[in-house]
Design a protein around this nucleic acid. Structure first.
Length: 1157
RNA sequence: GGGCGGGUAGCUCAGUUGGCCAGAGCAUUCGCCUUACACGCGAAGGGUCCAGGGUUCGAGUCCCUGCCCGCCCA
């Protein structure tokens, strides 16, 4: 914890800039001296607060992102830093571009993860387990501890996000379990339940025996495990027709089998009891076997028809059934390419419906009993459905692993273990506890996502060109029906992830949403338990009630009548029974109904009502006085007319109890884009939070613009948000925008509503230098706060953005910082260096602009007023604006960062600033270009590096304004200017307008001309370097008249950058070095007091060798007969030109070499 | 088993419809405290673009086969 607390000293540092407006900027950028103060200004001016009314009035287009809420389980890691930096880049850029921009922050309660962390903590600190907290009271106490933990981490996480510079609308921050979000969960559950899309099912779930909860399919990780195949012999018997007693089972001998035509039976002792051999990796589950299956095409099947086997020790007699699922044994198990299953198969499959999903299906097909032989902790138990223990009592109480060993030993002892082969296979493990998953039969709640209104709607949401399924793409009926609905409006970046999304929905299974946990949204289902005959106290039932009691009425009828009488028909939904989409199983595990019916409560009002019904139902066991009080309370609450129907209901039940389980965390996450904006009752949300414009949020900002997340979340989260949004939000959302607002109607689009977001951007996963995931256990993780402290937030952000290419993983070499002992990466040095470069460039520019004083003209500077290097610089700015806009539009982060790097470092610093040094002091137009360029760079860089750019902007802004540059718009729309000028955040860079560059600023000729001269400079520098000319020495360049004229027209550019004292058209004196430029022979003289002939000879020789190589290559290309004919003419011409120049240069070099010797 | 991504300089990575002598940063070497920046400036060396085949005048780029690494799903 302390690791992540903010540095307390940093927040008390004096604010820079503000303290001393006139002194010059410090030499190096020190992030810690600026970040806190700048962040405080952003926050205090409400710069990130989104105003939905501007969207609804049509004054601004919306741009909205909901944060993928971080789990409150732990502090943020580098992956979060990446995820949130990328969001912030989009958010800041769009805000500057004039969109009304919302970034909704919040955190996720992360049920199982948080609960298990707190469980461990409580065990360690108090020595208590969850089971030690008894009853509803104990549960509340324990949940309180988790709540406290959540509060602690929510603060840590929020602080981390803020320090990263995230420009969230912090006033709107939500938590998945807060009042506003809880209302959404309630409403969603209620609607789905009422519509029959939530049901309770008894079936095999993924059971985590350590956490003792069910898991969804997505929470199970497959891991390779070294195990064995065990071959167990089950003795064959006849079904005992008249006796239930297994002891009466009559053995089947090999002779009898032979007479039935069983292949290979005569190879055995004819009098001996025959057997079949099953192969299994989990012998301990044999205790729950209810059949042996054989493939009907198996030649042995006919002979076995009607026979049974008897389970050793248990004594249970179970049938042999025929099922296509059974894999036939391979004829030659050792042959190449034999399927692994066939290789190990015997053709007989033990069927344990309670402990294997495939067996469960076989069981359903053949009507087999389901015998659960395990307790919730996965130990062998006779208390959870297993009754015919027989002689197998010795296994009861053992763990899965112990039981396996003992079962194998028992079979071996009796000569029934035929073989044991090592076998490596994948086994499901809990993503949280890492325990092996036990397929476990239990009652759980499911969302019927297989319904077309859910999964189907999620598929239809995809844009057509990203759908792989051709029929869906071309279906004309579908296309006609789209219109305003959310169909065909969801797009993935990078595109390939659309496939992941699509295939997942095509193979989707119903979603298990109940978790046997305490931390989460309690399932809003109440069981109304049936009153047994003896529990009815005849004295309680008054005569009028008896008369009026509709004895035949079912619970739903009674319940609805009661609710209506109390004015709560919208708050509670009664149902006779739970909806089962699958036929109930036969056998001892059939669903035991102990309740009379269920009620789903939509609201706290509903909960209270059911509590009252509960008390009415319990009245018979209380004193007369208590009964009177209970009735009076009820009447006071709901009025006189409410009592009769409610009593009619209450008299049929003994008590009401809420389902103890909570919902899967993803259920609330799935509602995030809606719940954070106040769905379903934004007025209530406004009242609860004091945020007055809550009722405008949904219409203004949902659908959001883009969701940014990592790919592992596509199925867990993205899909479910799409399904829920489309089901629960009404159609025609777009049309309602600009039309004012209303609290959302309860009726949703049922699958044709809008999408929660238009784009889905999936970013890379950061790995360490060896391509491993960063993890605590490996100790290879990098803590974002460590980087912020050592390098600054902007440096971290720049590095992360620069790394974000469209590949699925990026590597970051991790090193230990020798001074702090903390993990870091040299990658971050790049970001730090970049920031420092920017700082110093700005420092230099500021020093020049400060000195200029008030004489700078205010009239607009036109390109024609400017020198080559200025026109070139502006052209580069214009090009970069276009490049950056294009990159941002496609979520191309690395190209964005690279474009900014090149513009700032290569163009602005290396060339422009160097070139203008001699002239800028005397040229007002040049100063205008300098300031505009720096300003444009700051703005374009702000989304990546918000702190430093804001810090610099503060200074640049305060300098006397220099003239505007025609074609470079840095002021924005005039009509918006007044509003912006009067805002609290006025003048801050984070709210400045995004640069817009007119096409006229792009100057192809200036760029070409500059490029030529740059090459000339480089050629001069090369010569200087090779001749070890001191950087201070001014040398003399000799060129022909034409080139001299070009140099002259460039305004001293070449002289400055190449360190020339003079440019001459005269032939050089004796001590000169020659080089070729553009096929022209040029000379540099005055390099030193004497030219080093050896160095020169070396240089020329190397040059000739290089040219030889080029000439050979170029001649080869031109010699190719197809080339001249088929290649584009301009390319061929270009090649000829190159060859000519290369030959000329070689001639010149050769001549010079000859002259030297 | 199915799907996806990657294999380019010592390291981390760009390289968008096939077309200048394949680029950047870091690292290395040489020279510079040139008054914005040594977290810097100037210059240099360094690549069988995983392997093999194909299409093409031309392939890092497109097609096929194979190898290796990683991820997701079953």
């Amino acid at each position: 914890m302390t690791d992540h607390a903010p540095n307390p000293s940093s927040s008390t540092d004096p604010k820079p800039g503000a303290a001393a407006p006139s002194n010059e900027l410090p030499k190096a950028y020190k992030p810690s001296e600026h970040e806190d103060a700048i962040r405080a200004r952003w926050e205090s001016t409400g710069a990130f607060h989104a105003d939905p009314s501007r969207v609804l009035s049509g004054d601004a287009e919306p741009f909205a992102i909901v944060i993928p809420p971080p789990n409150v389980t732990a502090a943020l890691h580098l992956g979060h830093a990446l995820n949130n930096t990328l969001q912030d880049v989009l958010v800041r850029a769009h805000r500057m571009k004039g969109y009304e921009t919302l970034w909704m922050p919040g955190t996720d309660h992360a049920g199982i993860a948080t609960q298990s962390v707190v469980e461990k903590r409580v065990l360690k600190e108090e020595g208590k387990r969850r089971a030690d907290f008894k009853g509803e009271e104990g549960r509340r106490e324990f949940v309180g501890k988790i709540q406290a933990f959540k509060d602690e981490y929510e603060r840590v996480i929020t602080d981390q996000l803020k320090r990263m510079g995230c420009s969230c609308d912090w006033e709107r921050q939500r938590f998945t379990m807060d009042e506003v979000c809880a209302a959404a969960v309630r409403e969603a559950f209620f609607q789905l339940f009422k519509d029959g899309l939530i049901y309770r099912g008894k079936r095999l779930v993924n059971w985590d025996p350590v956490s003792q909860t069910a898991l969804s399919d997505d929470e199970v990780e497959m891991e390779e495990v070294d195990g064995h195949f065990f071959y167990l012999r089950y003795p064959l018997v006849h079904r005992s027709e008249n006796s239930e007693d297994a002891k009466d089972a009559q053995e089947v001998t090999w002779d009898e089998l032979a007479s039935r035509g069983y292949p290979g039976a005569d190879g055995h002792d004819g009098d001996e009891n025959a057997w079949v051999t099953v192969a299994t990796t989990r012998p301990e589950t044999y205790l729950g076997d209810t059949a042996v299956a054989i493939n009907p095409r198996d030649p042995r099947a006919a002979a076995l028809r009607g026979l049974c086997v008897q389970l050793p020790l248990v004594g249970r007699v179970i049938p042999i059934v025929e099922d296509d699922y059974v894999v036939m044994p391979a004829a030659d198990p050792d042959a190449e390419g034999v399927d692994a299953k066939a290789k190990y198969a015997t053709g007989f499959l033990k069927v344990t419906p309670a402990h294997d999903p495939n067996d469960y299906e076989i069981g359903r097909r053949h009507g087999l009993p389901v015998i659960n032989v395990m307790a919730p902790d996965a130990s062998i138990s006779d208390l959870h459905g297993w009754t015919d223990i027989g002689d197998a009592r010795g296994f009861v109480g053992l763990s899965r692993e112990e039981a396996r060993r003992k079962v194998v030993a028992a079979f071996k002892e009796r000569g029934l273990l035929e073989a044991q082969k090592p076998y490596r296979h994948s086994v499901g493990h809990s993503y949280r506890s890492h325990a092996a998953i036990e397929p476990y039969l239990s009652d759980q709640w499911y969302v019927k996502v297989t319904d077309p209104r859910l999964a189907g709607a999620a598929l239809d949401a995809m844009v057509h060109e990203q759908r792989g399924n051709r029929e869906a793409q071309l279906d004309p009926v579908k296309r006609g029906a789209e219109r305003e609905a959310g169909d065909a409006s969801l797009r993935f970046y990078p595109e390939r992830y659309a496939k992941t999304y699509e295939t997942w929905h095509e193979n989707i299974r119903d979603w298990c949403i109940s978790r046997q946990l305490w931390w989460g949204h309690r399932i809003p289902i109440f069981y109304l338990h049936q009153r047994t005959a003896q529990s009815v106290d005849p004295g309680v039932v008054h005569s009028w009630e008896q008369r009026n009691l509709e004895s035949e009425a079912t619970l739903d009828v009674l319940g609805r009548a009661a609710a209506r009488a109390c004015g709560l028909e919208d708050d509670v939904w009664f149902q006779r029974d739970l909806v089962e989409t699958t036929a109930p199983m036969s056998g001892p595990q059939g669903v035991q109904r102990t309740y009379f019916g269920v009620a789903c409560s939509r609201s706290r009002r509903g909960d209270l009502f059911l509590g009252h019904i509960h008390r009415l139902a319990r009245m018979s066991s209380s004193s007369t006085e208590d009964q009177r009080v209970t009735r009076e309370t009820f009447v006071r609450e709901y009025g006189n007319d409410s009592l009769r129907p409610s009593m009619a209901l209450a008299h049929r039940i003994s008590h009401v109890s809420q389902d103890p389980d909570v919902l899967d965390t993803w259920f609330s996450s799935a509602l995030w884009p809606m719940s954070t904006m106040g769905w379903p009752d934004a007025t209530a949300a406004a009242n609860a939070t004091g945020i007055a414009d809550f009722p405008q949020m949904l219409d203004a900002f949902n659908p959001t613009s883009v969701l940014c997340t990592a790919r592992e979340i596509i199925t867990l989260w993205v899909s479910r948000m799409v399904m829920f949004n489309r089901y629960l939000r009404p159609e025609g959302t777009k049309a309602r925008r600009h039309e004012g607002t209303k609290t959302e109607k309860h009726e949703g689009g049922k699958g044709s509503g809008p999408v929660p977001f238009r784009d889905v951007f999936i970013h890379s996963v950061i790995q360490d230098g060896e391509g491993r995931k960063m993890s605590k256990s490996l100790g290879n993780g990098v803590d974002p706060l460590d980087i912020i402290e050592s390098h600054g937030s902007d440096a971290m952000r720049f590095t992360l953005v620069q790394m974000t290419t469209s590949t699925q993983d990026v590597r970051m070499p991790v090193e230990r910082d020798p001074t702090t002992g903390k993990n870091t990466s040299p990658k971050f040095d790049q970001g730090r260096n970049f920031c420092n470069k920017l700082w110093n460039a700005a420092r230099f520019a500021v020093s020049i602009l400060e000195k200029a004083g008030a004489d700078d003209a205010s009239r607009s500077v036109k390109p024609s007023d400017l020198s080559l290097v200025d026109r070139w610089m502006l052209s580069r700015v214009a090009t970069t604006v276009a490049d950056v806009d294009a990159a941002l539009g496609e979520y191309q982060y690395a190209p964005y960062a690279t474009a900014m790097y090149d513009l700032l470092w290569r163009d602005f610093c290396d060339w422009y600033l160097e070139a203008i040094k001699p002239t800028v002091a005397s040229s007002a137009p040049q100063r205008a270009v300098l300031r505009a360029t720096l300003d444009a760079i700051l703005r374009m860089l702000h989304p990546i590096a918000p702190y430093i750019t804001e810090a610099i902007h503060e200074r640049v802004r305060s300098l006397l304004p220099t003239a505007a540059i025609a074609g470079l718009d840095l002021t924005g729309d005039a009509k918006d200017a007044a509003r912006r000028a009067s805002a609290k955040w006025a003048g801050m860079l984070c709210r400045e307008v995004w640069p817009r560059a007119d096409a006229s600023l792009r100057d192809e000729r200036a760029e070409q001309s500059f490029e030529r001269l740059r090459q000339l400079v480089t050629a001069c520098r090369e010569v200087r370097s090779q001749h070890q000319v001191s950087p201070k020495r001014r040398v003399k360049l000799h060129v022909d008249a034409e080139l001299a004229k070009e140099i002259g027209a460039s305004g001293g550019l070449v002289e400055t950058l190449a360190g020339l004292g003079e440019v001459s058209t005269a032939t050089p004196a004796a001590a000169a070095v020659t080089f070729s430029f553009d096929s022209k022979e040029c000379f540099l003289s005055d390099l030193a007091d004497q030219v080093d002939a050896g160095a020169e000879r070396e240089r020329l020789t190397k040059q000739i060798t290089d040219l030889d190589k080029s000439i050979t290559a170029l001649e080869g290309r031109l010699g190719n007969p197809g080339y001249a004919d088929r290649a584009p003419k301009h390319l061929v011409d270009q090649t000829r030109d190159q060859l000519m120049k290369a030959k000329a240069d070689r001639e010149a070099a050769r001549a010079n070499l000859a002259r030297l010797s």
